[in-house]
Design a protein around this nucleic acid. Sequence first.
DNA 1: AGCACGCCGACT
DNA 2: GTCGGCGTGCTC
Length: 715
Amino acid sequence: MVRVVDVVVDRVVQALDRPFTYWVPEELADHVDLGYRVRVPLGRDVAWGIVVAQSNREETTGLKPVLAVPDAFPVLTPKLIPLAHWLSERYLCYLPQAIRAMVPKSVRSGQSKSARGRTVWYQTVKPREGRASQKQSLYLWLAEHQPVTRQAVLAAFPQAGPLLRQLIQEGVVAERSAPREVRLGSAPYSLTPDQQHVVDTIWAGRDRPWLLQGVTGSGKTEVYLHLLSRVLGQGRQGLVLLPEISLTPQTVARFRDRFGSRVGVWHSGLSDGERRDTWHAVREGRMTVIVGARSAVFLPFLDLGLVVLDEEHEPSYKQEEHPRYHTREVALWRGRHEGALVVLGTATPALETLHRAHQGELGWTVLSRRVAGWRLPTVEVVDMRQELRENHRHIFSRPLLAAIDQTLARQEQVVLFLNRRGYSTFVLCRSCGQAVECPDCAVTMTYHQDSEKLVCHYCQRQQPVPTRCPECGSDKIRYFGAGTERVQAEVEHQWPGVRVLRADRDVLHTRDQYDRLYQAFLQGEADVLVGTQMIAKGLDFPRVSLVGIVAADSALNLPDFRSAERTFQLLVQAAGRAGRSERGGRVIIQTYNPEHYALTFAAQQNMEGFYQAEVLLRQELGYPPFTELWLLEWIGPSETAVQYAARVAVEWLRERLNAPILGPAPAPIARLRGQYRYHALIKSPNGEDVTDLLRELPRPDPVSLAVTRDPYFMM
DNA sequence: AGCACGCCGACT
DNA sequence: GTCGGCGTGCTC
Ligand SMILES: [Zn+2]
Ligand SMILES: [Zn+2]
C-alpha cells in the first residue's frame, strides 16, 4: 500500500480547479498531513499546493510524487478544508482563490521550518521611563504589541538586536519561549437586568445562532463580554467581528481590559510578522479572544466556542473580491460545523436577518432600553420642499439652523451627517447644461476645495478646475450638490469662531488619524463634527445632544433594491449618536421625501414597522429574502463586444433557466476606468440551482465576466 | 497560470 | 538557414 494525497495546486485557472493526486515518498510520510503545504510537480513545472484529502492505494501508476513538505503545521487546518470547498461552490470561485482568501500570505509563503528557529517571545515586565530615544521607542512599541516574537520585533525595528539585549539586562523586558499572561484583565462589570436576561437566554439556547437586536446605546458590547467569559470558562475560544472602521483602540481596549493579553487583534493594518504570530497563537490556542475585521472569520481556531458579528447589517461584511463571500454566512457556517455559538448583534438588523428571526431560523432577543439614564433622542423630519417653497434655499433648514444655535449656546456638541465627500458633487455649465464628467468613467466629477481639483470618486482621477466650459467655452460655471467640505465651510461661515472637525476619507486615511479625531472630539476640542457614514457607526459621544442629517435622501435614489433599507439603517444609526448621556438628544432629518416609509419609520425608530413594509415589497418584486440574487457583470474595452457577450450569455441562460433574469443592460455606471460594463440580474427562487449552469456559461475572451451571489454593490 | 510544442515571417 | 511571433494543448 502506498500513501497518496489529493492536492489543490496554487494556480487560479479553470483547468486546474480540482485536486490532483500524488504519492507520498516514504521519507515524507511523517511530515505530510491534511492541510499541509506541499511542493509538487505539475506538467514540466513545479508548484505549491495544499493537501485536501488523503488515502492509500495499491498502485501509483500515472502518479507523480510529492517533492517536499516545508512546514511542520497545516496552513489550512483540517476543520477549514470543507469551508474552502463550500466557499468555492457557493460563491463560484476557484478553490485556490478560496484558499488564498482564507490563509494569510505571510503564513502561506512563510519560511520553511528548517529555516525557522525556535520562537522567542518578548514581553515587558516593568514600566520604563526615559527620554525619547531609539531604546525607549522600542520599549513603548513592545509594551503596546506584546507578546511579540523576535521576528516581529525585527520586522518593525531592524536594528533592535542590541537594544533588546540592553532592555533585558535592565530587567524591563523578558525573553520567553512561550508568551505568559501578563495581564489577567478585570472582573466583569455587573449587567443591567435586561442585559443579564439576554445573556442567560442566549446561553441557554447556545445550540443555535442568535440575533441580538439592541437599540443604540443599550450596551450590546457588555453582553458580548459576558458571553465571552462563559465561553472562555469552558476552555474554548471566542471571535468578535467588527466593521474595520469600528476596530479602534478604544474598542480593542474594552476587550483587553477584561481579558488581558489573551486578546488578539486582526485587521488589514497588521504587519506580516504580527499577522503570522497571531495566526499561530490562535491555531495553538494560546490566544483565546480575537477582535477582528472581516478576514478574521477564517482564523484557524483550535476550539471555537463563540462568534459575535457586531453591526451585522453592515454592507462592508460583503467581500468585493473573489470569493465574494458574506462574513455573516461564513460565521454561521463555522458555528454549524465547529459547534460555536453565533451572535449577530445590531440595532438595525439586515432585512434577511430579521426575516430569519421571524422564521425561527435564528434565536431572537431584544435589548429595547438604553442603559440607565439615557433616553432615546427625539426625531424631527424637516420637509426641504416646504423650505424651498418658502424661499429658504440654504443647505441648513431653518429648524436645523435654530437647533444648532441653541446647542452651541448650551456648550453642547453637534454632529452633522452627509453621505458625500467633497465640496460640490457636480460642476455644471449654465450655458449648455453640460456637467463635467470623468474622461474614463460615466460619472460626474466632484469638486474638492481642499485640493482645488475635480476628482472622480470611482477611479480617483484628478483634474484642474475648469474656468471655462470644456464643451462650449462659456465661463458660466456653477457648482451644485453640497458635500462634507461645503457643510464644514458653511458652519464656519455661519458661526464664526466655532471649532469644526471633519471626518471623511479625504482627511482620515489611517486608523490612527481616525482615532485622533475621535479623541479630540470626545475631549471637547471641537464643537461640531461634520462627517460621512464613517461616523454613523457605534461611536460614543456623551456631549453630543444634536444630530443633523443634512440630506437623508442621498442613498434613497440609488439603483439598488436595498436603498430603502440602507437609508433606514443609516438614519437610525446616525440618530443613535445623539443623547448618549442623561442630557438627552435631538435629531433633525432633512429630506425631500418626508412621506417615504424609510423616513417615517426611521423617525419613529420603528424597526418592526419598517420590516413589515419592506418585506411586503421584497416579496412582491421578487427580491431577497424571497429570491437568491446573482449579479453578472461583463466588462471590456469595446462596448459592442461587451453588449454582445452579455446578450449571448443571457439568451443561453434563458434557454436553460426558469428564474427571471433582468437585463442585460448597461450598468448604472456604464463605463469605469475606460471599461464598458453591462449587467444582468438573476432572481432565483430559493432552491433552484444556478451554480452549475453559471459554471458552464460561455465566456468569450476579450470580455471578462464576474459573477456575484447575493450582491451588495450594484453600481 | 505556466510551459512546451509547433508552424510561418524577416533577420544577425 | 535560425530567431521569435503567439495559437493550442496539457498538467495527478
Ligand atoms: Zn473616473
Ligand atoms: Zn457649456
